[in-house]
Structures are given as C-alpha cells and as structure tokens.
C-alpha cells in the first residue's frame, strides 16, 4: 500500500473540470514527477490533496487514513506538506522566524530537526537568517519556501514548480537539494516543466492533461509515449519539447 493514495479525485470550478477522476499511488522513498501542459490541473491536484480546496468527488488516503477535506492544517500536521507555485513566505518576518514558525509546528509529536538552524544550513540559507523574508532575492525566497515546508518535518513533500523563475545554476543547486531528500526519509512529489531536470531527478513521471492522468512510468518510457508527445508537441511532431 502506498503512503498517498488518491482515488477518483474530481475538482470542478464552476463549469471548469480541473481534475477529472485522478488515481495516484505515491510512496515516500523516491521522487515522483508530475508534468503536463499549463492548466492541466497539476496545482489543483496539490491544492485538493492538501486541503486548500475541497474536493468535488473522490477520496485521498494518507497512510491508510481518509484525509479528504479534513482541512489544510490537519493535513500538514500529518506530515503531508506542500509548497506553493507562487513563492511564499511570511514576508514581514526574518528568515529565522519564518523557519522557526514551521519548525515549532512540526515539533509537535516529534520533528526530525533538533533546531531550526539545521534546516537553514540544509537549504543553504544560514547566512541570511537575520534578513527580512520580503527583502530576499528570488532565489533565496525559493529556498526559504522549501525550508519552511521542511520545518514541518514532512514525510511526503509536494513541491509545486520549485525551480520556476530560477536561473540555470540556481535551478541545478535546487535540484541537488531535492535529490538529497528521499534518502533522508522525505518523499518528494515534484511538479516542473523542465523535462531534462525531471528525467534526471524523478524515478517515476505522471502526466496530466485536462485533469486526467494520461501516462505514468519511468521518465524515458513516459516521454516516448505517443500520447504524451502529442500533448506536448501537438499534431505537428517536429517542435521541441518546451
């Protein structure tokens, strides 16, 4: 049995069907990637799984428990934690305090970090501890988003385009940090558009299109799938993968 099991998940915004019956099984010992064109429902999937939006239908099981619609804070306390596509922080507070807030929440029932400083060290933000989060350069803000999520001591971390807006070297450094998580017992489910990075990082890829899972498997296999190629390349198969 997988740690996270999603069954027939549906989400409708008025007339828009953002998720149309998704089934997923995600374990906590690896990096799973979720890809798909813009508007295919990737972020919505995270939002519904983590209780930000209520599900229209279907069920989410986490470690065998039904967590559908139990509320975002309760899901986070069960150590299923996510980051946001828009880089988020507590902008008026220091970097230290940002991480400490999350760490104090994660410490209930035993967290994995002895102090918030260790998290800053891990993501490479230690020298900026006294800076105000809102004044951070974008790359550091992305790291802070990760640090805050790690502070909750997640068992599975859902990362929504953590590399978006970073330059190549920043994105590579970020990927290196992400790759260190599963060996430490933190499973990762990653959304990103960078196919090269995804192929390298992920053990498994899931492809969404119009709120439906159209492919799943090892990256090389999935990217060779004609259905996936059609979604990404359109009927004209000569363009490059974006």
């Amino acid at each position: 049995m997988a740690a996270l099991e999603v069954r027939g998940l549906r989400k409708q915004f008025g007339g828009v069907v953002a998720l149309n019956g998704i089934d997923l099984d995600i374990d906590t010992d690896r990096v799973v990637g979720i890809v798909g064109p813009n508007g295919s429902g990737k972020t919505t999937l995270f939002n519904v799984v983590t209780g930000v939006h209520p599900a229209t239908g279907g069920t989410v099981f986490w470690q065998g428990q039904d967590i559908t619609n139990i509320g975002a804070h309760r899901i986070a306390r069960k150590r299923l934690v996510r980051t946001f596509q828009q880089a988020m922080s507590f902008p008026g507070l220091t970097v230290d305090e940002n991480v400490r807030i999350a760490w104090e929440q994660g410490r209930r029932g035993g967290g994995r970090w002895a102090s918030p400083g260790l998290i800053l060290d891990f993501v490479g933000l230690a020298p900026l501890g006294k800076a105000i989060a809102g004044s951070l350069p974008f790359g550091s803000l992305r790291r802070l988003g990760l640090a805050v999520a790690l502070g909750v001591s997640p068992e599975l971390l859902l990362l929504d385009e953590p590399g978006a807006g970073l330059n190549d070297s920043e994105a590579q450094a970020f990927a290196a940090v992400i790759a260190q998580l599963p060996p430490q017992g933190i499973g990762v489910c990653l959304i990103d558009h960078d196919m090269d990075m995804m192929s390298e990082l992920c053990d498994r890829l899931i492809v969404l299109d119009f709120g439906t899972k159209i492919a799943e498997g090892p990256p090389a296999e999935v990217l060779a799938d004609p259905k996936v190629r059609e979604v990404y390349l359109g009927p004209d198969k000569n363009a490059a993968v974006s």
Binding site: A76, V81, I101, A102, V148
Partner: peptide
C-alpha cells in the same frame, strides 16, 4: 513566545500558516 509567532504567521500569510499546520 511560540504563540506570538503563530499570530504573526497568520498576519503575514494565512495560507502559508495553514500549510505549516496552524489552526488559523
């Protein structure tokens, strides 16, 4: 205190506060 930090977290970003487990 931790309580004060929790309140500031809510002031600064309610959605992020929820996502780290705070009962806003």
């Amino acid at each position: 205190s931790r309580y004060g930090r929790t309140l500031r977290a809510i002031r600064e970003n309610e959605q992020l506060a929820r996502s780290v487990g705070i009962n806003v």
